[in-house]
Nucleic acid binder design. Structure first.
Length: 596
DNA sequence: CTAGGGTTAG
């Protein structure tokens, strides 16, 4: 043993020596108890017996351990027994409750701190602002922001980053961005807060734009940055950028942890490449419920019900315990693949095997599954057997969609009128009702519903589609002429459609089209956004490459049929992700087998 | 006698 090793060993011995003698027996007992309620209660009793319940150091440790044990109730009770809490105790408590998911309590303790006239520090603020972010409590957060300024912590970079994240999460992106822009030194965390803020509010393009700007500024991204950027790619269907991120992560030796791995799975499956998603899944060294659920849901949205159920079976044997979200993925996979019996079993197992209580989402999946399969009576029976408190509008919407699909006008009209009564401001219900009337040929009723919408000033959701070409995403929307090449696209599409007609495509008659679509149809603009995006993709990419389009609404039947023909005449694979699922068009047929 | 932060997935 050389001198250096000897010294190290001596230090170790000293350390242990100090450790075992510098703490009181009660403190040591707390350390031994750890974050476990029963042992902590026993030590608490000892502390009381020893007459040490005025020792703030002991009480602070006891409180933070109680909080770490997940029992906020016990923590609260203990707090009320502390005679004269100091700033150390308050800070520990606020940090603990905020970090462990008890934001309301964090705010409560912050208030008590103020009442006790104890000044908050920058540490206090980072924790309590995070609590406000978790609560999306805009007013409260603004108030605390003013305390930050008064206390002179406005230029603390941790507090600033926390504020950026808070405003972004609470939906006030403008204020978040103003704060961010004013930050003199923008840390990676500040960039991450702003990027994820854009992404989580649905502004993926802005999120990705900011990511490019971050690189221009020479700030090195970390795995958190990539998680947000990949989520943005997943939303936009930007597979090129997604692959670039994946390459970057691998070539720069980043550790693909559970979170990053899961967001890669999500990105690949939502960009249309489930095979690649599965590769990532298989290579991950650690997988949790979220990773398994992401993979199952990936299979589901592509209509690969068998694969989804196969993986779910493996999960039940070797994997983590499935939770409510897992069952949403499983049930919707069953719904999209027509696996009725499997779906019924899974729904029953939820409660009996896993003790999970089905919520609205699960009921919606069941109605959707039964309804798609044409089992309208069973679906309706299922709805009627729910408790009145469980009858969310979404359940009726699923029922209505099933009525429309299987042309059950009487039930459909009944359901739609019920929906209009419950949610008179939701334009989607009017669209569905008018669709049903149009299918039934009751054009006077269609007009009536339409006028009702106009009178209420309700607008249909605007449909748009995106396509990525050369790592840049292009957005197409009905009537939007901002793209310089748009005339060329229209011209090419006209040509394409006439070739489709030669191949046997019969467009839906204009009179039906007019009311059937979820998108506004203007006569001057002949095409839905997905057709425009596909035409653009065909023009801009070389033969043999797959066309991938993402649409925000559901595809209409006419487009669905037209794209089958486009896949023939252009001899290309075309993948369209609509609001609910993927459609892989190849050589005249679609992977959904027309089972929507 | 006591710690130390803000950002991330389904």
């Amino acid at each position: 043993m050389d001198a250096k090793q000897l010294r190290q060993q001596q230090q170790l011995v000293d350390h242990q020596h100090r450790d075992s003698h510098s703490h009181s027996p009660a403190y040591q007992a707390l350390l031994r108890a750890g974050p476990r309620i029963r042992p902590l209660q026993q030590v608490h009793a000892q502390i009381v017996v020893l007459g040490k319940c005025r020792s703030l150091a002991l009480l602070t440790k006891l409180l933070t351990l109680a909080c770490a044990a997940g029992s906020i109730v016990y923590t609260r009770r203990l707090f009320h027994t502390v005679p004269d809490p100091d700033s150390f105790l308050f800070n520990s408590l606020i940090k603990g409750s905020s970090k462990l998911g008890f934001p309301k309590d964090a705010v409560f303790f912050y208030r008590r701190m103020g009442l006790a006239s104890i000044l908050p520090s920058n540490y206090t603020f980072t924790s309590v602002i995070k609590a406000c972010a978790d609560l999306s409590a805009l007013r409260l957060g603004r108030e605390i922001h003013s305390h930050v300024l008064v206390s002179g912590y406005g230029s603390d970079s941790f507090v600033q980053a926390a504020l950026v994240a808070f405003y972004a999460k609470s939906g006030d992106l403008c204020v978040a961005r103003k704060l961010f822009d004013k930050m003199p030194e923008k840390t990676v965390v500040a960039w991450n807060s702003m990027i994820s803020g854009y992404e989580q509010n649905g502004f993926s393009r802005e999120a990705i734009g900011l990511f490019y700007q971050m690189r221009e500024w020479g700030v090195e991204p970390d795995s958190t940055t990539f998680v947000s950027v990949l989520s943005g790619c997943a939303q936009l269907g930007a597979i090129g950028l997604g692959c670039w991120v994946h390459d970057y992560v691998v070539s720069h030796g980043f550790d693909v942890n559970v979170v990053l791995g899961t967001s890669l799975i999500n990105m690949y499956s939502r960009c249309g490449n489930v095979t690649k998603a599965r590769e990532v899944f298989d290579l991950m060294s650690e997988r949790n419920v979220i990773s398994w659920t992401a993979m199952i849901s990936g299979y589901g949205i592509h209509g690969y019900g068998r694969e989804a159920m196969e993986l779910f079976g493996q999960m039940r044997v070797h994997g983590p315990r499935p939770n409510n979200v897992t069952f949403v993925s499983v049930l919707s996979a069953c719904a999209h693949a027509g696996l009725i019996q499997e779906g019924r079993c899974a729904f029953a197992d939820m409660r009996s095997e896993y003790g999970l209580v089905p919520g609205v989402e699960h009921h919606v999946c069941m109605v959707d599954m039964l309804g798609r399969a044409g089992l309208l009576n069973e679906a309706y029976q299922f709805v009627k057997e729910l408790n009145p408190g469980e009858l969310a509008p979404a359940i009726w919407t699923a029922m209505l969609a099933a009525c429309k699909m299987h042309k059950n006008f009487d039930l459909g009209v009944q359901v739609a009128e019920h929906l209009l009564a419950v949610e008179p401001e939701n334009p989607g219900h009017y669209v569905l009702l008018s669709n049903i009337y149009a299918l039934a040929g009751k054009m006077d009723r269609v007009e009536l519903v339409r006028n009702m919408m106009i009178r209420k000033g309700l607008k249909k959701q605007v449909g748009y589609s995106t396509i990525e070409v050369g790592q840049k995403t292009y957005l197409f929307s009905n009537g939007d002429k901002s793209l310089p090449e748009i005339e060329e696209v229209y011209q090419y599409l006209d040509e394409l459609m006439s070739r489709c007609r030669e191949a046997g495509y019969a467009p839906a008659p204009a009179s039906v089209m007019h009311e059937l679509e979820e998108e506004e149809r203007e006569y001057a603009l002949r095409y839905h956004s997905e057709k425009l995006a596909i035409a653009f993709g065909l023009l801009k990419t070389s033969t043999g490459l797959t066309i991938r389009v993402v649409k925000n609404l559901r595809m209409c039947e006419d487009c669905h049929s037209a794209i089958k023909y486009i896949s023939i005449v252009s001899n290309r694979e075309i993948i369209v992700r609509d609001r609910l699922r993927f459609h892989h068009f190849n050589n005249g047929s679609c992977s959904c087998l027309d089972y929507w």
